[in-house]
């Protein structure tokens, strides 16, 4: 089933999503990967202001390539999610409602995603010139010294995704193997 979603997400938006559903996402998402996660967690732990509101937000694990002159975006695509497995719970506690990445993640993280009601979306990796055509705007909003690992505010239109883990605990990677 294909569904259209808009950010920020609400609980009603995600409760009926099923692993395997195709999603077309529009709105603002936030690019943040390894180094940015460490800083966000430091800020959470010391009660400092966060670069963006986590409640209802969708984080995209991405380190975009620079925007060439005259274009809206450089190449964008998901990086390996499993590296963020141990860096995700503090963000889930703050109400993060969606994550976009690539690949399967560990059991512990899968359970946490279900507990905190956060959807794990995947985008196929390595189709980054194509995905760039779905970006309306991209800007660096925090941790500029991290270069491609900074936090980015990204406006997407009709961004193609799959639901990988739904909040009932289903997993697209297991379902894919069962169908074969």
């Amino acid at each position: 089933m294909t569904q259209r979603l808009k950010t920020p997400l609400k609980e009603d938006d995600i409760s009926s999503l099923k692993a395997g559903d195709e999603i077309i996402l529009s709105g603002i998402i936030y690019g943040a990967r390894d180094a940015a996660h460490k800083r966000i967690i430091e800020s959470i732990n010391s009660n400092q202001k966060l670069p963006f509101e986590l409640k209802g937000s969708v984080i995209f694990y991405v380190g975009p390539s620079p925007v060439p002159p005259g274009r809206k975006s450089g190449a964008v695509g998901p990086t390996t999610s499993a590296r963020m497995d141990s860096l995700t719970e503090p963000l889930l506690k703050k109400g993060l409602m969606g994550i976009i990445g690539k690949g399967d993640r560990n059991n512990h993280l899968r359970k946490l995603m279900q507990k905190y009601k956060c959807i794990y979306f995947i985008a196929p990796g390595g189709i980054s010139a194509f995905l760039a055509s779905k970006i309306k705007d991209i800007k660096e909003i925090a941790y500029n010294d991290l270069g491609p690992e900074a936090v980015f505010e990204i406006e997407v239109k009709d961004f193609p995704l799959f639901v990988a883990y739904d909040i009932q605990g289903n997993n697209i990677f297991e379902l894919a193997l069962r169908r074969e």
Binding site: V62, G63, R71, A75, G77, S128, A129, F130
Partner: peptide, 24 residues
Amino acid sequence: KILELILKNSEIAAKKKIPLCQDC
């Protein structure tokens, strides 16, 4: 569908000079 997207991606990258993958 994904394999078609990979081929389409390679066409866009070559034509528009956008990297094939953001991880260069």
